[in-house]
Design a protein around this nucleic acid. Structure first.
Length: 397
RNA sequence: GGAAGCGUGGCAGAGCGGUCGAAUGCAGUCGCCUUGAAAGCGACCGUAGGGCAACCUACCGGGGGUUCAAAUCCCUCCGCUUCCGCCA
């Protein structure tokens, strides 16, 4: 594979050199023609015509060679980090546990039951209006989500992220550049009439934000916190997580996105994980951090850490955040560079990480529920939900 | 959605088939002048790819075409502006 790529690169370079040489010849000739006249001119014109055809042929060859190289190159997934655990979805390693799984001396309700009792969600009408896996967040449910995401933005601001509200529809080349159109393009909503894609995360528009640019990173990384609705077809998830709002076609998310120098990417990845844990501490739920196995990295990630919160009624940890170091994978496809010490443009590295999503509500409600069916609002979140300390079931009239 | 116009270097703005990688102004860099600064004067000053280098190639929104030759002509896509229509 690598040998093939190298040989394609060589033929690509020689095709470019050959075309360059012909173009130089042609250029010199066309400078002579206006000065010439009579028979000499006629002769030059004939030679020019011939050269023109040669140049055209050389350019076709150049384009073909470049195209072949790019195609193979783009088909390659990112290199994996040597320390990432090898294997499939279940072969992750646990980096650490924070807190103990919540224990109750009563039968805990699941998030859906809790939300319905608070009038926080309307699944039936979601299905009526849009189909399965759609929902309305209602009343305190909507308030909880807005508060949570606002808390995420507030934390991002404290850490000098630039807050962004991004487009949710993007062009094909941006979608492809971020690595979402490969093996998993069936996960992506597509608007064929307009040749646009609905994004599954604001990582996509944030990566596209600086496409084809050379960034000045001399003052450090560029850090953005994007707020967007996210759309996922969940095509392969039939029968999985069908209850509640764990797995849905549309949710909201605040996502961190960083452009940095490749040599700083690994340290930045740890910082992103740190900021995710800072957010998780604010909702005060037990969680673990896992180092995702190589087979579960997707095409663009070099290494990925997930934070999974304890969900009592599932007796399991469920993913609340995911942070990926994409190294130069996305930047290479999107043409994003920075200047090194010598002022030479170089491909940079991109990273992303979740700060908060709709799904977090599940962990908050289930872990903080009390025997009487109410839920204690985590202290840090209270200022963002109008000072509410406890959520209590609506009284049926 | 309909009509018209426009997209040129960091910015402003000429050029509208060859002498154009592109006038000019501003900004920027260096030098002179000055106690210092401003002003003034002089020189330099786009980007990317390739080569040890001299140098070569590409780039005037993107792609394609005409031509020996395209910033300049044609097609197409994208974007912007203005007017009309419609509308969160």
């Amino acid at each position: 594979m690598v040998d093939k790529l190298l040989s394609l690169d060589t033929s690509r370079r020689s095709a470019i050199a050959a075309a360059d040489k012909l173009r130089a010849e042609q250029k010199a000739l066309s400078k002579l023609i206006p000065k010439a006249s009579g028979e000499e001119r006629a002769e030059l014109l004939t030679r020019g015509k011939d050269l023109s055809a040669q140049v055209k042929a050389a350019e076709v060859e150049q384009n073909q060679a470049s195209e072949e190289f790019d195609q193979l190159h783009r088909a390659l997934p990112n290199l994996v980090h040597p320390d990432a655990p090898v294997g499939g979805e279940d072969d992750f390693t646990v980096v650490k546990h924070v807190g103990e799984p919540t224990k109750f001396d009563f039968e805990p309700k699941d998030h859906l039951e809790l939300m319905e009792s608070f009038g926080a969600v309307d699944m039936a009408r979601g299905a009526k209006v849009s189909g399965s896996r759609f929902y309305f967040l209602t009343g305190i449910g909507a308030q909880l989500q807005l508060g949570l995401l606002n808390m995420a933005i507030a934390q991002a601001l404290e850490n000098d992220f630039v807050p962004m509200i991004t487009p949710s529809l993007v062009r094909p080349e941006i979608m492809a550049g971020t690595g979402f159109l490969g093996a998993h393009d069936s996960e992506v909503y597509r608007l064929r009439d307009d040749d646009l894609f609905l994004v599954g995360t604001s990582e996509v528009p944030l990566a596209g934000f600086h496409a084809d640019e050379i960034l000045d990173l001399s003052d450090g990384p560029k850090r953005y916190a994007g707020w967007s609705s996210c759309y996922r077809r969940e095509a392969g998830a039939a029968g999985k997580d069908t209850r509640g709002i764990i797995r849905v076609h549309q949710f909201d998310k605040v996502e961190m996105f960083v452009y940095t120098r490749p040599e700083d990417a690994e340290a930045e990845h740890q910082r992103l994980l740190g900021w995710e844990e800072q957010m998780l501490a604010k909702i005060d739920v037990p969680y673990r951090v896992i180092d995702t196995a190589t087979g579960d990295l997707g095409v663009s990630a070099h290494r990925k850490f997930d934070c999974e919160a304890w969900v009592p009624t599932q007796d399991a940890y469920r993913e609340l955040t995911s942070t990926s170091n994409c190294t130069t994978f996305q930047a290479r496809r999107l043409g994003i560079r920075h200047r090194d010490q010598n002022g030479k443009p170089q491909i940079l590295a991109t990273l992303n990480g979740t700060l908060a999503t709709t799904r977090w509500i599940v962990a908050i409600l289930e872990n903080h529920q009390l025997e009487d069916g109410s839920v204690r609002v985590p202290e840090a979140l209270r200022p963002f939900v109008g000072g509410r300390e406890v959520l209590t079931p609506l009284v049926k009239k």
